[in-house]
Design a protein around this nucleic acid. Sequence first.
DNA 1: CGGTAAATAT
DNA 2: AATATTTACC
Length: 534
Amino acid sequence: MSVTAAVPLQFPEGIRVLAVDDDQTCLQIMGRMLERCMYKVTKCRNAEEALSLLREDSSRFDIVLSDLHMPDISGLKLLEIIGLEMDMPVVMMSSDEKRETIMKGIIHGACDYWVKPVRMDAIQLVWQHVIRKRRNGLKEMEHAMEDDVEGGNEEGSRSMKRKKDREDEGESRNAMPTTVKKPRMVWTPALHQQFVAAVNQLGYSKAVPKKILEQMNLPGLTRENVASHLQVMEKIFSRKIYCYCLVKDTDNYSYMVQKFRLYLSRVSEISQGPEKTYMNPASLNGCNPQLNVVGEVPLQGLTREGTSRTPMAFVDQRNLFHYGVGQQACNSSKQAKLLHEVPANMLQQPAQMYRSLDFQVSEGTPRSLNLPAANDDSVYGSQSSFSTMQMAQTPYGMPMLNEISGHQHFGHHPLSNQILSNDIEAQALRTVGNPIESNAAACYPLASPMVDFSKDHSHGFHLEMNAIYGNASSVGQGMVSLGEEYGYRNPENIAQPGNNLLVDDSFRMKPESMPRPGCKSLSFGQHFDHGFMS
DNA sequence: CGGTAAATAT
DNA sequence: AATATTTACC
């Protein structure tokens, strides 16, 4: 539409505007423009004055147009006060068109942000904000904001979708129903430990969000929080992911591997030196945690029905994807057999496959690599970056994935020192004690010592991610592996690999994720209950 | 509610 | 880009 000064405002004429700007010239010009659009204008030279006018009787105005930078009270402050004390739309104006600044204005509650010089068309349409405010309230207003502010630069892809507050200035939140950002919870080591404790106490089968939540008993913590964490932990440790990911695509597999690496990093931590890990040395028995696949799982009983939470008692039937100790080798025959049945996509096209997964395929023994010292690791250290995952061959000629080394520069995890915005962390600390001092640290090793595998290979952890391929059973459901669990943190478990501590062998998997009969699939065991989640 | 997975936030 | 959390959904 043509926007001419001459065009009279046909909508709510006489909308009362309070214009605030310390710049006399700007104020004048704007006033003139407003009047031309038939608005009733009241001009203010400073925020102070505007504020007193508004406080005196805010109903005298319909909307406020304020400059952002003003000597007495900043536009933002004014914006906030207005938002706090009255329900009045405010348009922020400034020559500053930095996205960040605009965002700040919007976030502080401005219903719009105009980059100076203010254009006539903007002025002419300002009434819409009044209407929006009156009718639809915030929601609509935000939409308007989106459009206006968005036009700018950069990707702005999703940044605008959620407008929330950010207490950047430590001040108050906007009284304006402006969406208040709910702080993201942070699973600090202490919290996580409580979580783990709860889960372990409940046992895998009973460890559902609600129960865990109750067990943890931390005010502020929500079931969703727990569920979320549980989901992640399960992805990492549960057979679930290992199973159904494998029947899916490479991406999933890749994801799984990532998680697994993270897990491994922890394992390596623990196996790399008492003084560096906070793990009780005794529990490690000086051995290298080693994952061995030593069995295979018949599919019977692994069907959906059989998988309810009911613990199933197989002993010999299950795959033992457990932590062995040192050279305690796996059953070679079984393994050999199993390895031959590794899914085609895993072994038949190793190069390709592994390349995409950042693996290296090698024929010989795993190469030795140095493990750069890392600083302040934590399980959560996001950037676990194992440099190599090698395909090596076992003495038996069996390929296996060997996690040779990697450096972890888990930088500072926010969890380390940062405090939660809420006091859940405090609660947790109170209950558990400082994680750094407590055993929780075992879960979050702080440092990764330098290890030279070339000198002593036995020092490195040696993961055998052996593939197992099971035959589909009559039930026609997927191949599943059930892991026997051995908490590596539990001396007895390590010492007695035969000791089955599995609490619940149930296998939960979406039916649709189940591989078809005869479908080959890899399987991994899981490690969940015994401190594995830490 | 429990579980998943997509959407977002960091 | 990779993770960690939150949401939406079934």
